[in-house]
């Protein structure tokens, strides 16, 4: 038996399509399950399922919506096994949030375009924290240790930073409108 079987010919095409859609897939999952670690699990499951079903993909249709439907399906399956997330999204709230997010999407795209500039305006210490948490994916505990703060203090700081970024994004859009 050959220990190194040849890679399936579809693999490079799948990788290209998936990498182009990965960001939207991840956003779809995070909209329902914002916890980064949990969302990562779901995205991984989605990626594996997409590859398994890739033979069924219709090239005539765009890949991203197909992939996002898988992501929604795997998110729902994941939620079924998590009591705490069920509590949050039960009684139809999950569906309601999905629909409302779709309605808000154009406005979100427009306003959140200012996010990069808003991040640049953060004081250096806050920017380092955001970078550690979102870019390096360092846990809150490790960030707290590194900064000599309590875990709760860092959670609070992250909360305040996100609030400040949202206000900045809204203010930036308001200025655009006034101009």
């Amino acid at each position: 038996m050959n220990p190194n079987p040849p890679l399936p010919p579809d693999q490079p095409r799948f990788l290209r399509l998936f990498l182009a859609s990965e960001r939207e897939v991840r956003r779809t999952v995070l909209a329902m399950v914002p916890s980064l670690a949990d969302a990562e699990d779901i995205v991984q499951q989605t990626a594996a399922a997409l590859w398994e079903k890739f033979a069924e993909y219709d090239e005539a249709r765009p890949f991203t919506p197909w992939a996002c439907r898988f992501a929604q399906h795997h998110t729902r399956r994941w939620l079924e096994r998590r009591a705490i997330w069920q509590r949050l999204l039960e009684h139809g709230l999950a569906e309601e949030l999905t629909q409302r997010r779709e309605a808000l999407r154009p406005e979100m795209e427009r306003r959140l375009a200012a996010l990069e500039k808003c991040v640049e305006k953060l004081p250096e210490e806050q920017r380092r924290l955001v970078t550690g948490y979102y870019y390096d994916r360092t846990g809150i505990g490790a960030l707290a240790e590194a900064q000599g703060r309590s875990v709760e203090a860092v959670y609070k700081m992250m909360q305040r930073i996100r609030q400040a970024l949202l206000e900045c994004v809204r203010a930036a859009t308001a200025q655009e409108v006034e101009a």
């Binding site: 995070l30 909209a31 914002p34 808000l104 996010l115 920017r127 955001v130 970078t131 979102y134 996100r162």
Partner: peptide
Amino acid sequence: DEYLWRVELHARLACDADAILGRDATAVS
């Protein structure tokens, strides 16, 4: 709506970290 905005901002920071934070990372980290 406010919940969706906050979650979306969080999701953008996580998904687009290389675009939003990548260049900053070279400057501050």
